[in-house]
Design a protein around this nucleic acid. Structure first.
Lengths: 255, 255
DNA sequence: CTACAAAGGTACAAGGTCTGTACCTTGCAC
DNA sequence: GTGCAAGGTACAGACCTTGTACCTTTGTAG
């Protein structure tokens, strides 16, 4: 027998709660400056003891996600996220291939999502998609931009009638974090609106190939933008860019 | 603020271990009749206390995945899996859309996997793929068939150079369980070999569209076969069709 | 400038989980 | 029928989770 391998561990409530909250922050559900509910309330909402929540908040505090203030106007506030974003960026630069691995996975999920959406969408789905694009084009700050962007992709997965794709699309977005705060704000908005509209038109028309091509372009655009953020100013030069065209030439260790 | 929603829970070690072992069984890493390592050894391999392992085994025992025998030739043996397969089948029939949801997700993962493999594969990858197909065509029993099949898809994800796709492909295969034991054995072998060879040829040729089309066909074939197992007449022909609730209620004592 | 209210901070006891260690029981093989 | 390789059981210590109670900080209304 083989591969009964190791690595099995329990997850404490504290860890689970910290992961949950960290994910909400990564997804932009709560952004810099937002205040979380009071400990007692939040603990009740999450169905856990206050102490467990407090320990989770302590973790997030240590990692620089939130800061805690006492007194009447006290509470737990999301920070500007400079520290965690810096750590995320360092990891993306350090762990070879991690960045492209995530984006490749996202492409796998979203191209098929777009394909299914083009086939299965109904009028209500189209309306929901239009609304997210309208919100996006009207977004006046980064938080609104983030949320509209997230909701477009969620609406697409909803139109695709796939609960697993919806969940996975959200998960992988959380892994990419939310780094728009590091970009100049104006550029990405118009580009993103254009990309989303292209996807929408193909989905509305039931154009399967057009929809997959449009979403692939969109994610490749996002990849390029994020790559600039992550690797900009690297003294050792850009790491190898695994485009599909190039990568075929190289070959790796056997297995 | 919204969506701070509920549902956060810790996972006990026992649960984690049970999930891990159940997954190995679902993937066919260990099959009917196989014996797991002795409790003391397995606990050490997994890095956990024996009691935690024992509780996990108790769970699997209750669910009909394994049976435990004492004495010199004793140990923990994987059952014929009739009970869990019946439960799985009942669930697929009952939970509306669950079956297609899983297969749709699998298509999302594997089409992009095939696409990337066609672009990034090296000679070693091609050799590994050929080997799994050879194994498959020589498979004399269901266990060998299962393993070769799994390994082909793993090799494909390896050729695609994507750790996340590899992990996700494995996960979703575990959710589909391993129901080949319910099929007549001869048919699917030749079909499956043909399908895999079609994928291989496209990947070898670097034919992106051919590879995605071939893997999509393969999975749609698998969908049709599985659908027949899941939704068509009872494979055991018994007019007495037990619901899973009934099945769980009976046959409780015999252990 | 004082009292109140709304937050976070701390303490403790009861019950559950995980570990390490030790010892008992079963049943095949010789 | 003895040896021995399994599983079966017991227990104490450390850690995690919960419920409850009470303390401290700080903005602000009066």
């Amino acid at each position: 027998m083989h591969s009964m391998a190791n690595g099995v561990t329990a997850q404490t409530l504290t860890e689970a709660v910290a992961d949950h909250l960290r994910r909400l922050i990564h997804l932009g559900e709560v952004g810099p400056g937002d205040r979380l509910p009071a400990e007692r309330d939040l603990a009740e909402q999450l169905g856990i003891a206050r102490l467990s929540l407090r320990e989770a908040l302590k973790t997030l505090q240590n990692d620089g996600y939130v800061e805690v203030r006492r007194g009447a106007r006290g509470g737990t506030y999301v920070t500007e996220l400079k520290e965690p974003v810096a750590r995320w960026r360092a990891r993306m630069r350090t762990v070879s291939g991690e960045f492209d691995d995530i984006v490749d996975f996202r492409i796998a999920l979203e191209t098929e999502t777009a394909r299914l959406a083009a086939v299965r969408r109904g009028p209500a789905d189209l309306a929901a998609l239009r609304e997210t694009i309208d919100d996006l084009s009207r977004a006046h700050d980064r938080t609104a931009f983030r949320q509209s962007d997230s909701r477009f992709h969620a609406a697409l997965a909803t139109a695709a009638r796939s609960t697993r794709l919806l969940a996975a699309v959200e998960s992988i977005r959380a892994e990419l974090f939310n780094t728009y705060d590091l970009l100049p704000f104006v550029d990405p908005v118009q580009e993103s609106v254009d990309d989303h509209q292209a996807v929408y038109r193909a989905v509305e028309a039931g154009d399967v190939d057009g929809a997959t091509a449009a979403i692939r372009d969109h994610i490749e655009n996002a990849r390029a933008q994020l790559r600039a953020i992550v690797f900009d100013g690297d003294p050792f030069g850009a790491p190898d860019r695994r485009t599909d065209a190039e990568a075929g030439a190289r070959e790796e260790r056997g297995r």
